[in-house]
């Protein structure tokens, strides 16, 4: 086991952890904003998966990575908006709508992908995003390579963590959004357009989660396969709770989930034989334990998942 403690191992491990955490972080950040405004989207997995497939399909047919990302984001925004429409306008149960989304997205992506494969035979691996090293910072041992020798989307993520933190904690708009999730009636009374805020937050969630999925497919893997997100959307939901809906904590929580996955592969490479399910389930188990131990009030917005009907008192 002494191999675990050398610098080379730690560097590779931490790099892998950052890589694995990125798509999850994007989705979890988007979901946080959405939940703060009172919409919980259990269909996060669906949004990511659509982002992944449509980014890959657009990239394959146009050859443009930027268009690919835009395609993935657009797919995410459409699905997330559909969820918001069902939940806000039609006042349906958020969970049911989210689960329906998951089926729909898994179905449509697998179906279209099946047709694509049938038409063109085997699909080539596309080019992934290039690494951009940040001078000086990337020379720091261990941390430098993991955090500052990444691609552009990872750096954008650092910025988003800060931006969303600033938005939620320091800006008036953020305060309005939080008030919509906590007490929509009061927010309405002071002139905030409750449902408009909800829709906007859902669109933002679609943007972030779609981007997360797109990044996974065309930024990191360069391929799409059926159900390529394989539960990352559900992990992101747990990360939101674990990170107590605070962008900085969410970044760390996602890193923790990413680290658990990375550790699994590293240990397997070293020949340590632990069942992979152990590492897949461990972060969830720890999240539950943390929930149980935390004496703090849960960070859940008071009106999460509830419809707001203006004409009802």
């Amino acid at each position: 086991m002494s191999e675990i403690l050398n610098v080379g191992f730690l560097t590779a491990f931490l790099s892998a952890a950052v890589r694995m955490s990125m798509p999850i972080t994007y989705a979890a950040l988007g979901e946080t904003v959405s939940e703060k405004a009172g919409i919980i989207n259990v269909g996060l997995e669906a949004v990511m998966l659509s982002g992944a497939f449509f980014s890959f399909a657009v990239l394959y047919y146009t050859g443009s990575m930027i268009l690919g990302f835009l395609g993935g984001i657009l797919a995410g925004v459409i699905l997330s908006s559909l969820h918001a429409f069902l939940a806000v306008y039609l006042r349906q149960d958020h969970n049911v709508s989210g689960v329906a989304l998951n089926f729909f997205s898994l179905g449509i992506t697998s179906f279209l992908f099946g047709i694509m494969v049938k038409k063109v035979g085997s699909l080539p691996q596309t080019e992934t995003l290039p690494t951009i090293e940040i001078p000086l910072l990337s020379d720091i041992p261990i941390i430098g390579e993991a955090f500052f020798s990444c691609d552009i989307i990872t750096y954008l993520c650092y910025f988003m963590v800060f931006a969303i933190w600033f938005f939620l904690k320091k800006s008036t708009w953020g305060l309005s959004l939080i008030s919509v999730g906590e007490n929509p009636r009061a927010a309405d009374t002071v002139g905030i357009r409750v449902n408009k805020v909800k829709y906007l937050s859902a669109i933002f969630n679609g943007f972030m989660s779609g981007l997360g999925g797109a990044y996974l497919a065309i930024g990191q893997l360069g391929v799409f396969s059926e159900n390529v997100t394989s539960g990352r959307g559900y992990i992101a939901l747990a990360v939101v709770v674990f990170g107590q809906r605070n962008p900085v904590f969410i970044f760390l929580a996602a890193l923790f989930f990413g680290a658990a996955q990375a550790l699994q592969f590293r240990l397997q490479a070293l020949g340590v034989n632990l069942p992979s399910q152990f590492f897949n389930g461990l972060p969830y188990l720890l999240t539950v334990v943390v929930l149980l131990l935390s004496t703090k009030k849960s960070s859940e917005p008071a009106a999460l998942g509830q419809p707001y009907i203006r004409s009802m008192r």
């Binding site: 958020h94 152990f278 389930g281 149980l292």
Partner: peptide, 26 residues
């Protein structure tokens, strides 16, 4: 504790799958 069951029940799905995975390998 007022923790939303939506997310906890999903997490418990993964924990259960973990338990099955460990049992059928052990």
């Amino acid at each position: 504790m007022n923790i939303s069951e939506t997310v906890t029940t999903i997490m418990f799905n993964y924990i259960a799958i973990m338990i099955v995975g460990i049992l059928v390998r052990g």
